[in-house]
Nucleic acid binder design. Structure first.
Length: 731
DNA sequence: GAGCACTGC
C-alpha cells in the first residue's frame, strides 16, 4: 500500500501535540487521519499513561477503522486495539487504542466526568457537527482546564471550519494534512436551472455520450426525485442506445431501500472475505441483490457505465467505487425543529461549501474526475454557508440539557455552556420547559432525583419519564416495549415506494390495530404478536415488517430493561411474555404513563371538528396523521385529549403517533403549565431572560382557531379547561 | 387521507 500522506507529518504532529493541549488537524479525504493519528501518538508513548480514544459519528466507521488499525498493528481486535458501540463493547484491560461512537463517549463521561482513563481524546470528523460531537467539544474544552497536565485533545475538521474550531480552543495550532485524492475539475453551470431533474438528465446524457468510461454519481434530495430521474434516464438512454455509446445501468440509492442494504454496506466497508456467506444469510430479494451486491458495490461489466442516483447518503456514509463524474444539484433535505411550536419540518435547503466539496471529492477517489455543479460559482461563493447549520441548532435540546445538568459541572452554568455554536435562547428555554413538565428539573431549574435517573436511560426524556411512571403503575414491561418500538420506528416498515406499493398483494391486514387507543398501543400489540410467535423471522416478513428493525427493538428493549433493573435495585418484571391481565382491555395504566411522559406533547380536540390544538406551545391547529390507527367513536368523534410523539409539518402540521388520554390525567399538566415560570427555570441567566420576555409577548398575542383568547396565559388555560368541562357535561 | 434526508445512546 502506498505511504499515507499523514506519515510525512509525523514529527510535526508529535511536536505540536507535545507543546499544546489542543490541536486541530485538517485532514482531507484519504489522508489517513482516522487510522494514523492514534498510531502515531501510540508510537510516541502516549499510551503509557492512558488510553488513546477516537470518536466517530457512525458505528460502522468506529468498527471498520478499529479493525483496520488492529490489522496494521498486527494485534487481535478487542485486545490492544478495540472499539465500543451501542450493544457491543470489544475492548479489554489491555486495550490502549479505542474507537467509539461519540454517543458512547458521552455515556462514559456520565459515570466518569473527567475521563481519567484517557490520555488522548481525538474527536474525528468534527466538521460533520453532530449533536454529540458538539456537546463533546464543549466538555473537552472544560476538561483541558481540569486535566491540563495529562490530557491531549485532537480535533479533526474541514478546511473551512478549522479557524473557527481553533479560535474556540484559545487559538490552538492548526495542522494541515493533505489528502490522497486525484484532482477533480469543477464545472459550474451558468445559471440555476429551472428544472433540476431536466438539468440532471441533460448533464448525465452529455457525460454518457461524450465522456470516456467512468461511473456517474448524482446527488438529489429524496426518494421521489430519485425515482423520477431514474425512470427519465432509463427512457432517454433506451432511446439513444443504438450501438452509439456504451451500455448503462441506472441505480437508485437512498436510506429507505431495504434493510439488506445496510448489512451490505457494513460487509463492504469491512471488506469481509465471507461476503457470500453473509449475503446468503441476509436472504435478499432478487431485486435487492441486483442493486446492492452485483451492481453498486462491484465494478460494472465492461463497456458499461453506471449512473447512481443518490441522496446525501453517498456523501459520507457510504462509498461507491468507480465514480469519476459527480452531478451536484446543490440541495439537501434537512430536518429542523422549531422550539416555539415544538414542530419538526423537513425542508429542502442549499448545501454548505463543505458538503459541496465533499460531494465533488467523490469523483476523485480512483482517478482524476469531474464535478458538474448545477449552480453558478457565484452562488457557491456568496450563498452557500461555509459549514452546514450544526445539528445542535436544529434539534430539540431536552435530552442534551438534561444530560449536561446531570453531569453536575458546578463550575459551569448550563445555559451559558460553551458551545462552538450556541443554540438559541429560545431553544434552551423550550428544553427547560419540557424538562420541568416531566419533573426532571424543579421550578428553579435544578435537576431532580427523577431527572438523574432519566439521564441514565438512552432515550428522549419524555420516554424515560414514561418508563419511570410505568414502573409505578406496574406496566413497565409494556412501556419498555412501546419505547423500544418507537426508537426503531423508521426501521420497522418496509420501504414503500409508489412502485412497490402497487406490487404488494395484501397490505398488512393481520397486524393488530391498537384497539382504537392509538399508535403506541398498536406498536405494543405488534411486538407482543411477534413475541407470541417466538420471534419468528418469517412472521416479520409475512407482516411486512423489517426483520432488522424488529431485532433492533429486541436489543433496545433488553438494554433498557437492564438499566431499569439496575435503577430499581430489585427485580422487576420486564418480561415481554408477562401475563397481561386486566390492563389488556383499555391499557389504562400504560396510557396514563404515556400521558405523564408526554406532558409537553399534549393536544386538545376542537369543539366542532376532529382537529386538535396543541397545549402548552404557541397554540396551533394540528391534525392526527392519516396513517394513525386512532379511532373515532360511533358519532365519528376523536378523543378529547391525545398525547403525541412528534409534530411534523409536511403538507400540513400533523401529530405522528398519537395515544388517547383522559381529562383527569391532563389536569395536573395544565396546573403545572399554569405555575410555569421560564425566568426562574433558567436560573436568572441574563441573556435568556431578555429573549424570553420578547418571545413571551409573541406567544400571548396569538389567537386560537378563530376563537378570541384572553391575552394572558393563565386565563387561556382556564378557558381551555372550562370549554372542556362544558363539553364533558354534554355527554 | 399522506408519504420521510441521515445519524446515534
Amino acid at each position: 500500500m502506498a505511504r499515507l500522506p499523514i506519515l510525512q507529518f509525523e514529527e510535526k504532529i508529535v511536536e505540536t501535540v507535545e507543546q499544546n493541549p489542543v490541536v486541530v488537524v485538517i485532514g482531507e479525504t484519504g489522508s489517513g487521519k482516522s487510522t494514523q493519528l492514534s498510531q502515531i501518538l501510540h508510537r510516541h508513548g502516549y499510551t503509557k499513561s492512558g488510553i488513546i480514544v477516537v470518536t466517530q459519528p457512525r458505528r460502522v466507521a468506529a468498527v471498520s477503522v478499529a479493525r483496520r488499525v488492529a490489522q496494521e498493528l498486527d494485534v487481535r481486535l478487542g485486545e490492544e486495539v478495540g472499539y465500543a458501540i451501542r450493544f457491543e463493547d470489544r475492548t479489554s484491560e489491555r486495550t490502549h487504542i479505542k474507537y467509539l461512537t461519540d454517543g458512547v463517549l458521552l455515556r462514559e463521561s456520565l459515570s466518569n466526568p473527567d475521563l481519567n482513563q484517557y490520555s488522548v481524546i481525538i474527536l474525528d470528523e468534527a466538521h460533520e457537527r453532530s449533536l454529540n460531537t458538539d456537546v463533546l467539544m464543549g466538555l473537552v474544552k472544560r476538561l483541558i482546564k481540569i486535566r491540563a497536565s495529562n490530557l491531549k485533545i485532537l480535533i479533526t475538521s474541514a478546511t473551512l471550519d478549522g479557524e473557527k474550531v481553533s479560535k474556540f480552543f484559545s487559538n490552538c495550532p492548526i495542522l494541515n494534512v493533505p489528502g490522497k485524492l486525484f484532482p477533480v475539475e469543477i464545472l459550474h453551470s451558468k445559471d440555476r436551472p429551472t428544472s433540476y431533474l431536466d438539468s440532471c438528465l441533460k448533464t448525465a446524457i452529455d457525460i454518457h455520450v461524450r465522456e470516456p468510461e467512468g461511473d456517474v454519481l448524482i446527488f438529489l434530495t429524496g426518494q421521489d426525485d430519485i425515482e423520477k430521474l431514474v425512470s427519465m434516464l432509463e427512457d432517454r438512454i433506451q432511446s439513444l442506445q443504438e450501438g452509439s455509446c456504451m451500455d448503462a445501468i441506472i441505480l437508485p440509492l437512498h436510506g429507505s431501500l431495504p434493510p439488506e442494504m445496510q448489512a451490505t454496506k457494513a460487509v463492504m466497508l469491512h471488506a469481509n472475505p465471507k461476503f457470500d456467506t453473509a449475503y446468503e444469510h441476509m436472504n435478499m430479494s432478487a431485486k435487492c441483490c441486483q442493486l446492492f451486491n452485483v451492481r453498486v458495490f462491484s465494478p460494472p461489466p465492461p463497456n458499461c457505465r453506471r449512473f447512481i442516483v443518490s441522496t446525501n447518503i453517498a456523501e459520507t456514509s457510504l462509498t461507491v467505487d468507480g465514480v469519476v463524474y459527480v452531478i451536484d444539484a446543490g440541495y439537501v433535505k434537512q430536518r429542523q425543529y422549531n422550539p416555539s411550536t415544538g414542530m419538526y419540518s423537513l425542508d429542502v435547503v442549499q448545501i454548505s461549501k463543505v458538503q459541496a466539496n465533499q460531494r465533488a471529492g467523490r469523483a476523485g477517489r480512483t482517478r482524476p474526475g469531474k464535478c458538474y455543479r448545477l449552480y453558478p460559482s457565484k452562488v457557491y461563493q456568496d450563498e452557500f454557508l461555509d459549514v452546514s447549520v450544526p445539528e445542535i441548532q436544529r434539534s430539540s435540546l431536552a435530552g442534551s440539557v438534561l444530560y449536561l445538568k446531570s453531569l453536575d459541572l458546578t463550575d459551569i452554568d448550563i445555559l451559558k455552556f460553551d458551545f462552538l455554536d450556541p443554540p438559541s435562547a429560545e431553544s434552551l428555554r423550550d428544553a427547560l420547559k419540557q424538562l420541568y413538565l416531566i419533573d426532571a428539573i424543579d421550578e428553579s431549574g435544578s435537576i431532580t432525583t427523577f431527572g438523574r435517573t432519566m439521564a441514565e436511560l438512552p432515550l428522549e426524556p419524555s420516554l424515560s419519564r414514561t418508563l419511570m411512571e410505568a414502573n409505578e403503575y406496574g406496566c413497565l414491561s409494556q412501556a419498555l416495549t412501546v419505547v423500544a418500538m418507537l426508537s426503531a420506528e423508521t426501521m420497522l416498515l418496509q420501504g414503500r415506494s409508489k412502485s412497490t406499493e402497487k406490487k404488494r398483494k395484501h397490505p398488512s391486514v393481520d397486524l393488530p390495530d391498537g384497539s382504537g387507543w392509538g399508535d403506541h398501543i398498536q406498536l405494543l400489540q405488534i411486538f407482543e404478536c411477534w413475541d407470541e410467535n417466538n420471534y419468528n423471522i418469517n412472521w416479520c416478513k409475512d407482516n411486512d415488517l423489517q426483520v432488522r428493525g424488529m431485532m433492533f427493538v429486541k436489543d433496545v428493549r433488553k438494554q433498557l430493561a437492564q438499566i431499569m433493573q439496575k435503577i430499581a435495585k430489585g427485580s422487576l418484571d420486564v418480561r415481554a411474555k408477562q401475563r397481561r391481565k386486566e390492563n389488556r382491555r383499555d391499557y389504562r395504566n400504560l396510557r396514563k404513563a404515556l400521558c405523564v411522559g408526554y406532558a409537553n406533547q399534549l393536544a386538545e380536540r376542537m369543539l366542532r371538528h376532529n382537529g386538535y390544538r396543541t397545549v402548552g406551545f404557541k397554540s396551533q391547529l394540528v391534525q392526527v396523521h392519516p396513517s394513525s390507527v386512532l379511532k373515532a367513536d360511533e358519532e365519528g368523534t376523536l378523543p378529547d385529549y391525545v398525547v403525541y410523539h412528534e409534530l411534523i409539518a409536511t403538507s400540513r402540521p400533523y401529530m405522528r403517533n398519537v395515544c388517547a388520554v383522559e381529562m383527569a390525567w391532563v389536569t395536573p399538566i395544565l396546573e403545572k403549565l399554569e405555575k410555569l415560570d421560564t425566568d426562574k427555570l433558567s436560573g436568572g441567566s441574563a441573556h435568556i431572560d431578555e429573549v424570553a420576555e420578547i418571545k413571551q409577548t409573541e406567544i400571548l398575542d396569538k389567537k386560537v382557531d378563530g376563537d378570541a383568547v384572553p391575552d394572558d396565559r393563565e386565563s387561556k388555560i382556564k378557558a381551555a379547561r372550562e370549554r372542556f368541562l362544558a363539553r364533558k357535561g354534554k355527554n
